[in-house]
């Protein structure tokens, strides 16, 4: 049964869904909502979340000693190892359950790992791949804000071409980053027996449904959440949802899932808007837009997005009812 907003509001009217107030993320940041949406779903379905965090904005801003903005068990270990860390926690759970040492054995435990794009696409990729390959029962959620934001907007493997960053700035000579964003969904879908999906807070019902699927999936799940950084994307504080909608409408962030090799687009868009609209809406592309080769760079991105969109439809068609295991 799909959750709706009214139900959740009724359930959480007087309690915190895992994450609490008093965190110090920037006003309007999307990251706390990614955590909130996921944990709210888990709790409303009767799960007790145990949370791991990779170093990054969500981690530093929620746990400045002696303040913690978590009301569920929480562990941060380092930047690149949240998946390995939660795999240890999840394994300990199985070991202690077997030996009768779980404090509250009747509860349904759900293990979550949250990492930024840096902690996921880049430095934490090995740890993530290992944990998923080993088949630990956990849900990994990358809140993708397309850069190392906690440390002041440095380039990551998730940064799109032309986006201003401090380690690959758009300069007088060089156009900044020209490489496309890594396709983390495909990388993760390349592991066996994994549920992989993209989500966005601008599509809450789709978000809840995918978390629900991930919780019920018999194996690890990887969820890529689009997570605008209002600060370094140079948009107004109230724009996280608007930008997310644009990302979906332009095909920049397609909403889909891959379950044991079966592709499904969960948000069909009749006609994609030009990606230029997405780019023009954000200050981080301002310098790109001033360059004489701007159209060329945006054109290449547009072509990639169009083809990827077509390809997704082909994959959906080709893999329909054909799980690889």
């Amino acid at each position: 049964m799909a959750l709706n907003i009214m139900q959740l509001a009724t359930m959480f009217a007087d309690k915190n869904p895992g994450i609490t107030q008093g965190h110090r993320l920037c006003p309007g940041c999307a990251a706390p909502n990614v955590a909130k949406f996921a944990l709210m779903t888990a709790e409303s379905l009767g799960y007790t979340p145990v949370v791991g965090l990779a170093t990054g904005c969500l981690e530093v801003s929620t746990t400045i000693f002696p303040y913690t903005a978590w009301n569920v068990p929480y562990i941060h270990n380092a930047f690149e190892n949240v998946a390995a860390t939660i795999s240890g926690v999840e394994t300990a759970y199985r070991a202690l359950a077997k030996r009768g040492r779980i404090v509250d054995p009747d509860k349904k435990y759900a293990f979550f790992a949250f990492g930024g794009d840096g902690g996921t696409y880049d430095i934490g990729l090995q740890s993530l791949s290992g944990a998923v390959e080993r088949g630990h029962k956990f849900i990994y959620i990358v809140y993708d804000n397309e850069g190392y934001m906690n440390t002041g907007n440095q380039r990551s493997g998730a940064t799109p071409p032309g986006s201003q960053t401090t380690t690959q700035p758009v300069g007088k000579k060089l156009p900044g980053k020209i490489q496309l964003k890594k396709n983390i969904v495909e990388i993760m879908a390349g592991h066996e027996n994994v549920y992989v999906a993209t989500v966005s807070t601008s599509e809450p019902m789709d978000f809840f449904k995918k978390i629900e699927k991930a919780l019920q999936f018999d194996g690890p799940a990887f969820i890529a959440a689009f997570s605008p950084c209002v600060r370094f994307w140079r948009v107004n504080d109230d724009k996280a949802v608007d930008i997310s909608k644009l990302a979906i409408e332009t095909g920049y962030w397609p909403l889909y899932e891959v379950e044991r090799g079966v592709y499904r687009i969960t948000k069909k868009v009749k006609e994609l808007k030009p990606v230029k609209e997405f780019i023009e809406a954000q200050g981080r592309f301002r310098n790109l837009l001033k360059r004489p080769d701007a159209d060329e760079i945006i054109g290449e991105l547009q072509e990639y997005i169009t083809r990827r969109w077509e390809r997704l439809h082909i994959l959906e068609e080709a893999t329909k009812d054909k799980p690889i295991r």
């Binding site: 270990n77 390995a84 926690v89 300990a92 077997k98 090995q126």
Partner: peptide, 25 residues
């Protein structure tokens, strides 16, 4: 009846035992 984690690196070995020990194992 130990649960053994055949990790993909020593970095993950230490990370996983940190997670496990913190968990109460």
């Amino acid at each position: 009846d130990t649960e053994m984690i055949p990790v993909e690196s020593e970095h993950s070995a230490m990370s996983a035992v940190v997670g496990a020990a913190a968990a109460g194992a």
